[in-house]
Design a protein around this nucleic acid. Structure first.
Lengths: 132, 132, 132, 132
DNA sequence: GTGGTCTAGACCACG
DNA sequence: GTGGTCTAGACCACC
């Protein structure tokens, strides 16, 4: 499982972990029933306090995105299609609203805002070689 | 000068103030040379501690978005057009990148992502009556 | 880590702290990766309010001279050699320009000004015993 | 009488005024018995609160660098040669000490520090055309 | 344990 | 009147 964190960023590490896993579950990179990397493993790999990973996992369990199987480990939970859809939408709505709000505040005309968004979208979708 | 804060949000109050003022300066609602509401006034109006406002203003001074005139008050600084543009772009780039990244991760096709973004943009630009 | 302040001086305490730490980082007495004394420790030691230290540290973080490691503490940041050089030069340029300006205003001949400067330089570099 | 202030600078305006006048007296640009510009005049010219000028003048009177002649105005005082010398030296010592201290802190070798100082000295003494 | 934020109230410097 | 600084003490998030 891929997972990178930026210890400099202003986002708490446990949230960075949550975001990455949640994203991977949503996109299917982590499928239902897949086992998550153990707290010990992941914390060692990211050079992070185990409690931090544990906390991230704990919240994801609360969100019912992953589930504990006692004595075995943590696994990606079964998520009903409509719930999955709602989750996706909520996540999208949040960031899109933020972006749109800012664009409106900045008095950017609709066409330009759209163009910018599409531009970023494409850049992320097919990053040119040479990008870091 | 408008300025509202949500003491519940988990964004620090001083950052909320910074964001609002920065936004208003960027959009021209606050123009070069305009005097800002005094620390004491604003803190009284928002019912927060003067130091909280002072901190927000202090950071904006460092960002060279506003400037001190000693003993008189704080005023919107002169911002060179190209710096203004860069500032705008940086602010936009951040949120648009985030939104686009998420959309890509979610495997949303470009057309749909665009449509969603435009939809939010319009909703924010001309909020229908009855919206909260 | 050494750090002394003069509560009498009319330089704000938080600036005195900043200056001392910035100086120590520049001279290498504090090296990259070194942990800074904790806010609570230092404030207790200097008998000042923790917020005062926190403010000083906060500004140094913004200057990218030190960096936060969340939940662990503050550490001396990595500073690229050319940035380090620029920083040094800027600090020096300020005070040297002031001194030179004054000497010129006072109509001191170059040779004498130079001699005076060197004299002070040596006195500071190797203070004689008994100096206050 | 020349006198320029920088309202942006971190130095209080009244101190900027004091420094300029003190400097001009020390260098003889303002000679014993010369009348100073009136508070009203100077404040109008610098677009500054009259009280600010008044305060600056007040402190200079205390320093016995200028003197009041009631009903007439303010004049450059007679300063005994040895006192003038002491004043000069103290002013110089202050700034030179600061500069030297910083250079020592920065671990600049003596030769280099000297060279830098001389360089600034010359630049100020004979500013090249084209400088602002 | 770390630092971050906020409050309430004080005092000071500046204009 | 303005903002700047500091204190004392509280609570919180993070690791």
């Amino acid at each position: 499982m891929l997972c990178e964190i930026d210890p400099q960023a202003n986002i708490p590490i446990y949230r960075q972990v949550m975001n990455q896993i949640r994203g991977q579950v949503m996109t299917g990179q982590l499928a239902e029933g897949d086992q998550l990397e153990s707290v010990k493993n992941l914390s060692a790999r990211l050079k992070v306090n185990p409690m931090t990973i544990s906390k991230a996992y704990g919240y994801l369990v609360e969100e019912e995105i992953i589930e504990r199987r006692r004595g075995i480990g943590l696994f990606v939970a079964r998520i009903k299609p409509d719930r999955r859809k709602r989750l996706k939408n909520r996540m999208l709505a949040d960031t899109l609203t933020k972006a749109a709000t800012l664009a409106v505040q900045m008095d950017i005309p609709e066409a330009e805002a759209q163009a910018l968004f599409t531009q970023y979208f494409r850049k992320i979708k097919s990053p040119e070689r040479g990008d870091k």
